[in-house]
Amino acid sequence: MYIREFAKRDGRHLSLYSRRPIADTIGPSLLEAPADVNPHLRWHPLRGEWVAYAAYRQTRTFHPPPEYNPFAPSDHPGHPTELPPGDYDIAVFDNRFPALTALAHDPPACWVETRPAQGQCEVVVFSQDPQGALGRLPLDHIELLLEVWARRSERLAARGDIRYVLAFENRGAEVGVTLHHPHGQIYAYPFVPPVPARSLANEADYFGRTGRVLLCDLAAAEADSGQRVLYRGPEAIAFVPAWARYPYEAWVVPTAPVAAFAALDGAQRADLARALKTVLLKYDGLWQRPFPYLMAWYQAPLDGQAHPGCQLHAEFYPPYRSADRLKYLAGTELAAGMFANDALPEDKARELQAVDAIF
């Protein structure tokens, strides 16, 4: 891995990563952030969780024409973008419209508890190709991305005020994407958010009772069944889980205990990249055009505690059902938190299994 670091003129950071040396002639990009960035948190008394408020996000980029793509490399003062021209593979920079930032201060007064929305929101541009996709990247490029996620997680952990790092990608207008250049995001929270907190509690309970990693045992059970497996390699597995809440939901998991990106070794990264690419190619092959999804990577929190039961993994939530119908969250999902799936995981797994993932 080759890295170059820059400070933008507005104080935001930019990091470039590559499989090849990065030329010294590459400089920082030109686009600057708005001046009124100051998100805050308010406490939800009934749900027992924080809600972030960042009204300036309403002005963020929305389906720009190609000549105004902020993620396309440019050094033209008339068309400034986030990225400089040059030969590199992946770029990471501070989001111009963050829901969490180290600069947050002085939250507005309210009768519920408030606090500055301290944290970090980073954009991860997967490729310079605006028409590209994560699933079409070479395997060693995806391996580099896994290593980038590890480096970013370690850097954010070093701040001391971050408790959880979530890497994710939204793909497709169907899940609300407003900029289609292939990219993901990293959210670094000053607390462990509710969804991973609940999973972590169940993982800790299982480890305490059995001394084993829950997700490793679940992945082994899926491997033994084979009924819903999409990829099985020496270090990783991908499957439609028996407990899927979404049609075509898929999970990608290292087969040995690995708590975080930073704990992956080279062989694990390589096989995890192959498992990830297989799922993405099957999605697009099934859809015969770009398949919409939310991809979220879960790892151990940064609270200074040991989490031996935690397992690094990715979960894919595709909204697509069948005949171009989309699964939107409805009353039981939003109001009660109980998902109702109109499709059996076994049936959807068979559809994906029938698609050849041609690398």
Rank of each mutant, 00 (worst) to 15 (best):
233 G>S: 05
207 F>K: 04
187 Y>Q: 13
126 F>N: 06
279 V>P: 04
197 A>P: 05
302 L>A: 15
350 R>D: 14
127 S>F: 04
88 Y>R: 04
92 V>K: 15
73 P>K: 12
191 F>A: 05
202 N>K: 13
112 V>H: 13
80 P>H: 05
250 A>E: 02
147 E>V: 03
204 A>F: 10
1 M>L: 06
138 P>S: 10
274 R>G: 05
251 W>I: 03
95 N>R: 14
38 N>D: 15
197 A>G: 10
250 A>H: 05
306 A>Y: 01
40 H>A: 14
178 T>P: 04
278 T>N: 06
7 A>R: 12
147 E>D: 11
284 D>W: 08
314 A>F: 03
278 T>D: 13
248 Y>V: 13
101 T>F: 00
216 C>M: 04
92 V>S: 11
36 D>M: 11
280 L>P: 03
347 D>S: 09
173 A>L: 06
24 D>Y: 02
138 P>M: 03
270 A>L: 09
325 R>C: 13
207 F>P: 02
135 G>Y: 13
44 H>S: 14
162 I>N: 00
158 A>F: 00
285 G>R: 08
177 V>P: 07
69 N>E: 11
209 R>N: 05
24 D>A: 10
225 S>G: 14
347 D>K: 09
311 Q>I: 01
140 D>Q: 12
226 G>V: 01
347 D>I: 06
41 L>F: 10
312 L>P: 03
343 A>L: 14
47 R>H: 15
256 A>Y: 01
28 P>M: 08
2 Y>S: 09
233 G>P: 05
219 A>D: 00
251 W>N: 03
69 N>K: 04
12 R>L: 00
298 Y>V: 08
67 E>C: 05
149 W>R: 12
169 E>L: 11
28 P>C: 07
240 V>A: 15
251 W>T: 04
90 I>G: 08
226 G>D: 01
232 R>D: 11
150 A>S: 15
255 T>L: 12
165 V>I: 04
129 D>Y: 11
304 G>W: 08
240 V>K: 03
226 G>P: 01
272 L>S: 01
38 N>C: 14
120 Q>I: 07
263 A>G: 02
144 L>N: 10
267 A>V: 00
122 E>Y: 11
171 R>F: 06
143 E>H: 04
104 A>R: 00
76 H>Y: 04
48 G>L: 07
147 E>Y: 05
87 D>K: 07
2 Y>W: 09
117 A>N: 01
351 E>D: 14
77 P>T: 03
56 Y>N: 08
227 Q>S: 15
244 A>R: 07
29 S>A: 15
148 V>C: 08
225 S>E: 10
85 P>L: 09
33 A>P: 06
183 H>V: 09
19 R>E: 10
335 A>P: 01
110 C>E: 13
258 V>Q: 03
205 D>P: 02
242 A>R: 08
333 E>Q: 13
296 A>I: 09
208 G>L: 02
273 A>D: 06
344 L>F: 07
326 L>Q: 14
41 L>M: 09
215 L>A: 06
281 L>W: 10
123 V>T: 15
2 Y>D: 02
174 E>M: 12
208 G>T: 05
143 E>N: 04
309 G>W: 00
197 A>N: 10
62 F>K: 14
289 R>N: 12
59 T>Y: 07
194 P>D: 13
129 D>F: 10
23 A>T: 03
283 Y>V: 10
85 P>S: 11
116 P>A: 00
223 A>P: 01
267 A>D: 00
241 P>S: 07
97 F>S: 12
19 R>K: 07
62 F>W: 05
55 A>C: 03
